[in-house]
């Protein structure tokens, strides 16, 4: 599904920061494409209040009328993730872990990623992935600088729910990482 565009040269990826830029970009492309298909191919609309944008809006701006009914375009998901990644200076590695956590959440919590919850689920997964996997840990409050209208209390609460739903299983075995990396 995603592998076609992806050549894997780990030495470039790790060692050279200029070369790693396009790689981060293509990783985010692949990861967001996977999210896009998760939303598109879902069977139902099971959700949880903590991830619901209607109950916990991420912005004070009004959303379009059909926002909660229409599946987001890949471009929209990509822009949302890219904004967070460049503002928080996250790595391609972190993007892959984000996808692992997101899919794990859907399985463990028995919910579907859908128009009303995708942004908060993606944000929660990025928040956790960046905290656990990046050496320069991003604090929850840092996301309030990026998304101006959210509160740190909201981020803390979402993180707490996320961790509990994942049962604190933040482990990503090398084999799983490699599988996601190459798929």
């Amino acid at each position: 599904l995603l592998s076609k565009k992806y050549s894997s040269c780990s030495t470039i990826f790790i060692d050279d920061s200029t070369v790693s830029q396009p790689n981060l970009k293509s990783t985010i492309k692949c990861v967001t494409l996977a999210i896009y298909y998760h939303i598109k191919n879902r069977d139902s609309d099971r959700s949880l209040d903590i991830f619901d944008e209607k109950k916990h809006p991420l912005s004070r701006d009004l959303v379009p009328d059909d926002y909660f009914r229409t599946d987001p375009e890949h471009k929209l998901i990509y822009r949302f993730v890219r904004t967070l990644f460049s503002a928080a200076q996250l790595t391609a590695e972190c993007a892959i872990v984000t996808l692992v956590y997101l899919e794990r959440l859907l399985t463990y919590a028995e919910i579907d990623i859908c128009p009303c919850n995708w942004k908060r689920i993606v944000l929660g997964a990025i928040l956790l992935a960046s905290k656990v996997w990046d050496d320069q840990a991003v604090w929850n409050v840092d996301y309030c600088q990026i998304l101006k209208d959210i509160t740190v209390e909201d981020m803390n609460e979402m993180e707490r729910h996320f961790l509990e739903l994942l049962q604190f299983n933040i482990n990503v075995p090398a084999s799983v990482y490699a599988k996601y990396y190459f798929d």
Binding site: W139, V152, L163, F168, I170, N171
Partner: peptide, 13 residues
Amino acid sequence: EEGAPCTAIREVS
């Protein structure tokens, strides 16, 4: 401001 410390999350995991 930090939320759950990453050390604590890793320890539990």
